[in-house]
């Protein structure tokens, strides 16, 4: 049983296997909860978003496209459930195509390599020099793969501010990492 991959579990869930949902929950709920806690201080909203996530998985596991990491797919759903809760529409359709369809894995290999190097590399140093609000904007858009609209809800700032902060953050990073090049 425990040797089933995440994608295989999703297939079983799509076929109505409740034990598979349980197994997927045990594998992923913990880290999802911690990561959601890093995005939102309200325990209630986070718990609700996590619950919604697995209800959504139960109802639409068949919509996982079978490409990329299941973990990233799950994160994409749960962060959008959290944003939806923050908007004050916790009862909104948790299964809209916009949610599940948009929840494609946010990590491509280039970003992956870059960010794994963040811990020790130049990018990490450069990131640390940014003011917190710029870093938070980068995190929401680049790490979490959110649209500017979604990031605006998560960060509680207007959409235009997200865009301008993102622009500033990018140009500062560019200056630090590639000095001498002008944009």
């Amino acid at each position: 049983m425990s040797t089933l991959s995440d994608a295989e579990l999703l297939r079983n869930i799509a076929a109505g296997d409740e034990a598979a949902l349980r197994q997927l929950y045990e594998r992923h709920a913990g880290w999802l909860l911690l990561r959601l806690n890093r995005r939102c201080g309200s325990q209630d909203l986070v718990a609700g978003a996590l619950q919604d996530t697995f209800v959504a998985v139960w109802q639409s596991a068949g919509r996982f496209r079978g490409e990329g990491e299941v973990a990233a797919w799950l994160w994409g759903i749960s962060i959008r459930r959290l944003i939806s809760a923050l908007r004050g529409h916790p009862a909104a359709d948790p299964l809209g195509d916009d949610v599940v369809g948009a929840a494609v894995p946010v990590v491509n290999s280039a970003e992956d390599e870059l960010l794994r190097g963040v811990e020790y590399g130049d990018v990490g140093r450069a990131l640390r020099t940014l003011p917190p609000e710029l870093r938070a904007t980068l995190q929401a858009t680049v790490i979490d793969g959110l649209t500017t609209k979604e990031a605006a809800v998560l960060l509680g700032i207007p959409q235009g501010t997200v865009k301008s902060r993102l622009r500033v953050a990018k140009s500062r990073l560019r200056d630090q990492l590639m000095p001498g090049r002008t944009s």
């Binding site: 045990e26 594998r27 992923h28 709920a29 913990g30 880290w31 909860l33 911690l34 990561r35 890093r38 990491e69 973990a71 990233a72 994160w75 894995p105 946010v106 990590v107 970003e111 992956d112 960010l115 794994r116 963040v118 811990e119 990018v123 990490g124 990131l127 640390r128 917190p132 870093r135 938070a136 980068l138 995190q139 790490i143």
Partner: peptide, 26 residues
């Protein structure tokens, strides 16, 4: 800090072993 946190989270998406260790902390 955000840079290290982002690195951890990116790693978690790709590493089932570390996900398991992290989940135990929840």
């Amino acid at each position: 800090d955000l840079a290290r946190q982002s690195a951890v989270e990116t790693h978690l998406l790709a590493c089932a072993d570390c996900r398991q260790l992290t989940s135990a902390k929840a």
